[in-house]
């Protein structure tokens, strides 16, 4: 009996409602969109519904919302100081969105929205746009002093400024690729190792080895839960650090 598996199939977009085409672009309400709205629903459940009673002594769900709030508020405050408070909704939304989507991806047979580069890139582009637009609005051309390290001899600037610009431009790329690649690679690895279990079980005498990939799959699953939470935290922290550049462009 032949068993085949496609570790990539899990990332395919499945249109639930097709809405037509614009040129090459296919417009559809996909399962990816459904998961995104489901994530918004879950986040609203934790942060809006669970806090509706405004209890002084919180219940479990309200505690969860408060823990997330204080965690992100602390992270943001450490990175940006007092001026960063206005970005709290952005950083909190990004953290919760990425966290819940990553965790949705860990449900068996569920779709990992953050395994699509365009989604993570969209979020990273949003962050960088906010940094640039807010930085220019607040500091004008002074914002571009970000690319000029202070206290450096003039000849060195000719080398350093392009490096700084490249480093700034690569931020949305690194921010999005980091999240996307972690989720994608983790899901592929889990699928392949889980498939090894099946293959070994069907390979006659070799089936005695099947517990090995099984244990590895279990370990990988635990690791992926860690990665799911950690990458959401990394995304939020880096967002806060980049926003700090918009708030305090001086080097």
């Amino acid at each position: 009996m032949a068993v085949t598996i496609d570790p990539i199939e899990q990332f395919e977009l499945k249109p639930l409602v097709s809405l037509g085409h614009i040129g090459h672009q296919q417009l559809a309400f996909t399962q990816s969109a459904l998961y995104m709205f489901a994530a918004v629903g879950v986040i609203a459940l934790i942060t809006v519904v669970a806090t509706a009673s405004r209890s002084v002594v919180p219940g479990r769900m309200q505690s969860l919302a408060e823990i997330f709030y204080e965690f992100i508020a602390d992270t943001l405050h450490q990175a940006t100081g007092d001026g960063g408070k206005r970005f709290m909704p952005l950083v909190f939304s990004l953290f919760m969105f990425v966290l819940i989507l990553n965790l949705f991806g860990m449900i068996p047979y569920a779709f990992a929205v953050t395994s699509h580069l365009i989604i993570t890139f969209g979020l990273a582009a949003l962050v960088i746009s906010v940094v640039v637009i807010y930085g220019v609005m607040k500091h004008g051309t002074h914002f571009f002093g970000l690319f000029v390290p202070s206290g450096v001899p003039k000849p060195l600037l000719a080398i350093l400024v392009p490096i700084e610009i490249i480093s700034f431009v690569s931020r949305p790329i690194s921010l999005s690729v980091r999240l996307f690649a972690n989720v994608l690679a983790g899901h592929i690895a889990m699928k392949i190792f889980a498939f090894f279990v099946v293959q070994l079980l069907l390979a006659g005498a070799w089936s005695v080895l099947s517990p090995l990939p099984l244990f590895l799959t279990i370990a990988l699953t635990a690791l992926e839960f860690l990665v799911a939470a950690l990458q959401a935290y990394v995304f939020a922290t880096l967002t806060a650090i980049y926003l700090n550049d918009a708030l305090h462009p001086g080097h």
Partner: peptide, 25 residues
């Protein structure tokens, strides 16, 4: 699928941001 995904992302994240900014936080 990029355009479609970006549109849904903008809608979902926009809704989330609105809820967080106006109600939850």
């Amino acid at each position: 699928g990029f355009l479609s995904q970006l549109i849904w992302l903008a809608l979902a994240f926009g809704l989330l941001y609105y809820l967080m900014d106006k109600v939850a936080l």
